[in-house]
């Protein structure tokens, strides 16, 4: 009797050990994975080509909001402007706007060139800056576009590189479009996006907005 019990206990222990062992190891073929990643390498230029004329430009030219109206709303309070914003999962307020105004000053000492704009039909206190390249920072254009979503991409890098490619195109175009220092005092029209960050910000900046343009034109 005693021997039989011992035998059963041993059997149970061995089966349990085998069952446990079978779950401990997974085989991962890293070479295969690397090959897959390489073959599916994301073509950011092709992607941006595919949206530029068909979706991005129309979104800004035809489906954007008068910047003066947005700034008036922000001047009252941020929430008031929410109806004009695309609020990201990170809580950033992204606005797609257009406006006309006079170039007050131009600073191209850095590659992140900036023009200050006196906006028409606006007499509030928010200072308007326009990124004029050749380098454009941030993700305003992508996130304000309304149709480029994180979930549509494989990962953050692809999603981020879309923004970089858009910014590169804008920066090259807008910077080379004019001799910017000579634009001071001239009237321009523009369309583009800007962002107000809220999440984990201790102080939300509502004193200035910096527009990343999608297009800039000189007004006659």
């Amino acid at each position: 009797m005693g021997k039989k019990i011992k035998w059963i206990i041993w059997l149970v222990v061995i089966i349990a050990f085998l069952a446990w062992g079978s779950t401990q190891f997974t085989v991962v073929n890293t070479q295969e994975q690397a090959a897959v990643v390489e073959s599916e390498k994301f073509d950011r230029v092709a992607f941006v080509d595919s949206i530029w004329d068909s979706k991005l430009l129309p979104a800004v030219q035809e489906d954007s909001i008068d910047l003066a109206v947005v700034l008036d709303a922000i001047g009252e309070n941020l929430e008031k402007s929410a109806e004009f914003a695309k609020i990201s999962v990170s809580g950033a307020y992204n606005y797609r706007v257009r406006g006309t105004g006079t170039v007050e000053s131009v600073d191209v000492s850095s590659k992140n060139g900036v023009a200050t704009i006196q906006l028409d039909h606006y007499d509030g206190n928010i200072q308007v800056f326009l990124n004029i390249g050749p380098k454009i920072s941030g993700e305003s254009i992508r996130d304000g576009s309304g149709f480029i979503e994180f979930g549509d991409f494989k990962d953050q890098t692809e999603y981020g590189q879309v923004s970089k490619e858009i910014n590169k195109r804008v920066g090259d175009t807008v910077f080379n479009q004019f001799n910017w220092p000579e634009m001071v005092g001239k009237k321009i029209s523009f369309g583009g996006m800007f962002t107000i960050l809220t999440t984990n910000q201790t102080k939300i900046n509502l004193d200035t907005v910096t527009i990343s343009p999608v297009y800039v034109e000189e007004e006659e």
Partner: peptide, 15 residues
């Protein structure tokens, strides 16, 4: 949605 990407914040001497 499944994939949610939350932005980081720059910390420097000012903040």
């Amino acid at each position: 949605e499944e994939k949610q990407s939350i932005d980081c914040v720059l910390i420097n001497a000012e903040n």
